[in-house]
């Protein structure tokens, strides 16, 4: 039995209809589950390539369902969505193993882009969250926002931030980076940069820590090759003066 494409855990019919409208013309199959029990049941009966999970559904705490899914189906990437997308929720969703986050309301491009990326990532071998970030060999403490972005605190107190290989693998080239400007503010759990390509659309990069941007990677001006080849090294995105590393590091996964 071949895998179905997307399980959409969502109790709002209009959102399910809209998603179906956007995804089905692209040849993607979508099954909807209206509550936590329905979602678990569907996962028992079928194999899916990815899950789109709304955090506010009846019958179960969305975050718990997410943790269960990533624990029981480590190879199944989950995109988390909600109408109440605070930075704290986004951080918690990544911590619980979510692959990406799609705040509502989204438009067709955003939905299509994130679904394509998650499927591409899965089809390329889709390493589990635990494997998604390799250990960095350089000095300094490396911590990551789920399998999404990472931060490494240098000896000078400045943090270098970048994206994980999982993000790179979900994208299809040629990439262009939209980076924050000097002096911009980053907030943990709020998008601070984007990687774009005609094939993948725009991929928001969620900040792993809060602070003020002191430098963005100048070598990315001419192209995103370093990001693709060495996302944890020369492909860093920005350097940030952290505001509250001691507290925020607890929200991140140790590498």
């Amino acid at each position: 039995m071949s895998a179905l494409d997307i399980l959409f855990v969502e109790d709002e019919p209009v959102v399910v209809l809209a998603a179906r409208k956007v995804l089905e013309p692209e040849g993607l199959t979508l099954v909807a589950a209206g509550d936590g029990e329905g979602a678990r049941e569907s996962l028992r009966q079928h194999e899916y390539r990815a899950v789109l999970l709304d955090l506010m559904i009846p019958g179960v705490a969305g975050m718990e369902l997410l943790e269960d899914m990533t624990a029981q189906h480590p190879d199944l990437p989950v995109i988390v969505t909600t109408g109440y997308a605070t930075a704290g929720k986004i951080v918690a969703a990544f911590k619980a193993g979510g692959f990406d986050f799609l705040p509502k309301p989204f438009d067709d491009d955003e939905l299509l882009s994130v679904v394509r990326r998650v499927l591409r990532y899965r089809d390329r071998g889709g390493r589990t969250v635990a494997e998604a970030v390799e250990v960095e060999r350089e000095s300094g403490e490396v911590r990551s926002l789920g399998s999404h972005s990472w931060a490494r605190l240098g000896d000078d107190g400045m943090a270098t931030v970048g994206v994980t290989r999982a993000v790179v693998e979900s994208l299809a080239g040629p990439l262009r980076a939209r980076l924050p400007g000097l002096g911009d503010e980053t907030v943990q759990g709020v998008a601070f940069a984007a990687l774009e390509s005609p094939a993948s659309g725009s991929c928001r990069i969620w900040a792993p820590l809060s602070g003020r941007v002191v430098e963005s990677n100048p070598s990315l001006d001419s192209g995103c090759e370093p990001v693709v080849t060495d996302p944890l090294g020369s492909g860093w995105l920005a350097r940030v003066a952290p505001w509250n590393w001691q507290e925020e590091r607890n929200e991140l996964t140790v590498r």
């Binding site: 209809l17 509502k104 309301p105 989204f106």
Partner: peptide
């Protein structure tokens, strides 16, 4: 804000997805 965001963002998702889909 929490209440509004949750209640309004679902219908807004419907409107935004449909209209952007139709626009193309």
């Amino acid at each position: 804000a929490a209440g509004i965001a949750h209640e309004i963002n679902n219908p807004l998702t419907g409107v935004l997805t449909y209209s952007s889909f139709l626009l193309k």
